[in-house]
Design a protein around this nucleic acid. Sequence first.
DNA 1: CCGGGCGATGTGAACGCTAACATCGCGCCC
DNA 2: GGGCGCGATGTTAGCGTTCACATCGCCCGG
Lengths: 331, 331
Amino acid sequence: MSDVARLAGVSHQTVSRVLHESPSVREETRERVLAAMKTLDYRPNSAARALVTGRTRTIGVISFDTTLHGPASTLLGIERAAHEADYFIIIVSLRSFTRESVLGALERLRDQGVDGIVVIAPHETAVAALHDLPPRPPVVVAEAGPDTLSVVEVDHFDGATQATRHLLELGHPTVWHIAGPADWLEAQRRVAGWESALRAAGAPVPPPLVGDWSARSGHELARALLDRADLTAVFVANDNMALGLLRAVHERGRSVPGELSVVGFDDVPEAAYFTPPLTTVRQDFDEVGRRSLDVLLREIEHGAPLLARVTVPAELIVRRSSGPPPAGKGR
Amino acid sequence: MSDVARLAGVSHQTVSRVLHESPSVREETRERVLAAMKTLDYRPNSAARALVTGRTRTIGVISFDTTLHGPASTLLGIERAAHEADYFIIIVSLRSFTRESVLGALERLRDQGVDGIVVIAPHETAVAALHDLPPRPPVVVAEAGPDTLSVVEVDHFDGATQATRHLLELGHPTVWHIAGPADWLEAQRRVAGWESALRAAGAPVPPPLVGDWSARSGHELARALLDRADLTAVFVANDNMALGLLRAVHERGRSVPGELSVVGFDDVPEAAYFTPPLTTVRQDFDEVGRRSLDVLLREIEHGAPLLARVTVPAELIVRRSSGPPPAGKGR
DNA sequence: CCGGGCGATGTGAACGCTAACATCGCGCCC
DNA sequence: GGGCGCGATGTTAGCGTTCACATCGCCCGG
């Protein structure tokens, strides 16, 4: 910077002013400085700036498996929004949901000096670890969190309700459910939404089966489920497990939706090409990411927790895996 | 830091020494300093450290769509390895593969002061933009790059050859190919491997169809392809397009592998649950990520480009979508 | 004609750390 | 017993910014 100043015949402060587009620099000097910067290929040193301002223009994102469609899409939404706001994203991925793991990630990010943190870890233990955090830096939670922090989440309850109601309206006497892991908050919400829709319709509530989100687990659970004679409709807590279920149904030589209706959750890009194309509930992960960053940026500016609660709607996408129950099995 | 020094009754330099585990600090003083740090909840300021050392312990990763299985897995591999080496990952995602976009990302990261960069952008234009970069910071390219930089990639050619040979050995007279976009390097390599296997076997080389990696495009291209009477085997350049193809085949009421054999590429976690379970070529993305970081770290330490070429093997995973051709159609 | 005010610029310090060198005892060897 | 070397610690400077304040013309109004 001092080199630039010397070359332009001004003080370092004036160079700084030009950098910040301060209005109180004469046009002529401004151009002289700009020219000097160019010929010297000057680049401001972000570390020096961070040192004095206390801001790094950096946001930390803590996420579990970024290979999963949901977190990956949310992350992308955050990144895009951050880019636009001229922030960088530092990503830390969790290997497990233990309290230590989550707190450790938070600590690391904090030590690195991020201006704010988004946590994508919709898990009981992880969320529990988020109570009583120090006020700085601000933390926003995407996809379910504690009520001590700002939370941006999809309306899982409503999504599950829509899915269940859709099946009920097609005439199914009831709807079975393959749920996500019990300690995942979104899995819990979906169970609750499903159950509520069932009760509202006066339909019996069968015991939910519990999977681990993988196609494999959907496949395995389906095998037990398919033995039941009264089974006509299943709401599966995500598309991957639904795929496993579809596979199992096919192996039994049963038809979807002729003999069994299936509805998933997520609307992964491939869902439309499953056999048959999957009726599912779309989550706008991208929007979750964008809104999360939005809230976080506002908290950074505001200097204090906003305790915002943003809910992103879920949307039922009807495709070909759901239809009326087989003759004689409706209600 | 000076607060800690004062409390411990030493100079700030001694505090720094304790921080760096310098051997020349008496055990007793070391403990005194450690205690002071603890009571003051002292945290070293990374910006200040970066300012004086010129190192940020930060690695930039430039990637295209981090929502895709490949890049996402590679990214995860990089992140894990970085974590282990005590580095942070800053991620920048590209919206397009234009030269400006790639160069802009590089520039941004450089200005931010990252110690090194990994580029995941196996695309002609993107790779072309990577020629003639400034030597600092070091850049490593994952999944195909120019020969002026270190490259870590899966052996696409060999993977495609294995897939094609597998089908040929089952007795198919030839193998059709649904390729990825022509300007993606990995798509090119797979075409080359497929063609080479065909020629080596003396089989005719049908014109490859070109998709865009999506299930949708696989579905569309399949419709044209399925009109051909002589079609018995298709090698599809990725699992998503293969899913679309499978869907199209099903819609025509044809059977896989009875009437048509299909082999994909990637081995996404769901491939085993497609209908039928997909024979495909597994890419170890995680390994690509790890090795990329490995090379990059070595370059950072070494201070100069290593021009390493790391090839990660591809592995054919035989499942149920491939079998012998229908009677009378073999060779 | 002079003081006030304002626009344009400069000066010095501070941010929190590390690197290089300086200092100070103390034991050891000849 | 005096110098040497070494282990333990302190001192000083500097990394590249920004911030707060100082300075300096110059125009304007009374």
